[in-house]
Nucleic acid binder design. Structure first.
Length: 493
DNA sequence: TGAAATGTTGGGGCG
DNA sequence: ACGCCCCAACATTTC
């Protein structure tokens, strides 16, 4: 077999259930490549935590490919055609991406390569359904999740493709020596004098395709039963923690979908019913699909509120408060616990993402895009579609968003979802001795108790940077102003 | 995938 | 026995 096929790995860093990669293997000797294309990404350039994850994921992928993964850095629009020339590749394959900057780039590349007579194959390997497969009867995209999922995905669209096995045998193209670079040269990890913050992430994750599969299997065995309820409690492990694996394509949503169905069958045979848990897990996967659909049909989702009335919102600039939020020093224990979890582990529990985001947007009234940028930098699962759709959801300016007046009370959220304080005490150890009654509102504790617990409010732990009740009220007022301004504007048109 | 304010009901204490 | 008040507990509405 002398023909050479390039498989361009992007967000599909796996060999299992990778239809495009299989096509490459069937078309000739494979040259597997990865291009770090920061130049084209612009504002969507990967954040720090993602880069750390990518470093390890590429390493793992290279192992699976027996050391044949070729790495490049720069504009894919230049590098890919160049490689095609150098190697005389007849086929180029890739798994589709949906970020606006990637779509634009890929479309142009595809056209250019096709004109040169190259067979270009792009396939779906990252979504259960392509955005254009889930449309309303009038061929427009859904704007509300429930009908998107129930009608669009489950009833109208075809069943998700069943996962396919990794290629039985891989023949690799003989690589030239000089044109690729080493993993270290991608500069994915921070270098001195930048703090080696990423080292604190290491113990929390195991990265790569086989780790993703193991995580999934562990979850289906031990976490799925009770998922629907348990997923709301940060101290429990009833969450899949698969988001980063999914983002980088170390595992496909299709694989998870069918494993979930299998798990349902196994449990049913044992006489246990976990239908509600399975349904809920599948609907969470579908939220990811919904986000991708939103991004696909609204390319400006990452920085423009879908509801135009929000353009007039009176955001506040407050760098001191922002820093306190980022560092987990707001004086609101559940918020601080959440923000520290993010900083220390590269992850934040879903419920806490809502609480922490609500606090930034509504109590501090800081622009959601600023919080979005922080999450983008800190999350190992940072995903353009999910991150922007979710921030818009919390801000109340997205499609099918939480209504703006839905303001989370971080004290009640703590009392409800971290009842015994396990999670909060883990990340805010300076409050560990505080009894549950005051753990989520230390400012209300009698000074004798505060003293007994070895706490000095304002010194060992901050006083709240805002008054929750008042700031809530102000947020609601700001929303009213913004609404009436938008109304006045629309009247003048 | 809220919370607070307001409304309603019903049991118990008490004159 | 009765009415009255108080206040949980729950339901509804409002933001």
């Amino acid at each position: 077999m002398s023909d050479i096929a390039i498989h361009w790995f992007r967000q599909d860093l796996r060999l299992s259930d990778n239809p495009a990669f299989i096509k490459a293997c069937e078309s000739g000797a494979v040259l597997p490549i990865y291009i770090l294309d920061d130049d084209t990404a612009g504002k969507a350039k990967m954040g720090g935590a993602s880069r750390w994850w990518l470093y390890h994921s590429l390493k793992s992928l290279n192992d699976s490919l027996k050391g044949h993964l070729r790495l490049y850095k720069g504009k894919a629009a230049d590098i890919l055609p160049n490689l095609q020339n150098i190697y005389g590749a007849k086929t180029i394959t890739w798994t589709r991406c949906y970020e606006p900057w990637r779509r634009q780039r890929d479309e142009a590349l595809k056209e250019q390569l096709k004109q040169k007579g190259v067979t270009v194959i792009s396939q779906n390997g990252s979504l259960l359904w392509e955005p254009w497969q889930v449309l309303k009867a009038d061929n427009t995209p859904y704007k509300v999740f429930t009908p998107f999922y129930r009608k669009g995905c489950l009833q109208s669209a075809p069943a998700p493709a069943e996962p396919v096995a990794p290629p039985a045998d891989m023949v690799f193209a003989k690589a030239l020596q000089e044109e690729a670079i080493e993993l270290e040269q991608l500069d994915l990890l921070p270098k001195p004098p930048i703090p080696d913050w990423h080292l604190s992430l290491e113990p929390h994750w195991s990265i790569g395709e086989s780790a993703a599969q193991k995580r999934a299997r562990d979850f289906f065995e031990t976490g799925l039963q009770g998922y629907k309820m348990g997923r709301d409690f940060p101290a429990l492990s009833h969450i899949s923690k698969l988001s980063a694996h999914l983002h980088f394509g170390e595992i496909s949503p299709n694989q998870l979908w069918y494993w979930a169905k299998e798990a349902a069958q196994i449990m049913q045979d044992k006489g246990q019913t976990i239908d509600a848990d399975i349904d809920h897990f599948c609907s969470e996967i579908a939220w990811r699909e919904f986000s991708y659909s939103l991004l696909f049909y609204h390319p400006d989702l990452p920085d423009t509120p879908l509801q135009k009335s929000f353009e007039a919102f009176p955001w506040q600039q407050n760098d001191v408060a922002l820093l306190a939020w980022q560092m987990g020093q707001t004086g609101i224990p559940i918020v601080d616990a959440a923000m520290r979890q993010l900083w220390q582990t590269g992850f934040m529990h879903n419920r806490l993402r809502m609480v922490a985001a609500s606090f930034l947007i509504k109590n501090l009234r800081i622009d959601w895009r600023i919080g979005e940028a922080w999450f983008w930098d800190c999350l190992v699962d940072a995903d353009l579609a999910a991150n922007s759709a979710s921030w818009q959801w919390v801000a109340g300016c997205g499609a099918d968003a939480a209504p703006y007046f839905r303001v989370f009370n971080p004290v009640l959220q703590g009392e409800k979802f971290d009842k015994d304080g396990t999670f909060t005490r883990q990340f805010v150890p300076e409050l560990a001795k505080l009894p549950n009654k005051y753990l989520f509102k230390p400012w209300e504790a009698p000074s004798a108790i505060i003293q007994d617990c070895g706490i000095q409010l304002g010194k060992t732990y901050p006083l709240p940077i805002v008054d929750l009740k008042r700031s809530r009220q102000q947020a609601l007022e700001a929303y009213e102003i913004c609404k009436s301004t938008a109304f006045a504007q629309s009247e003048h048109k």
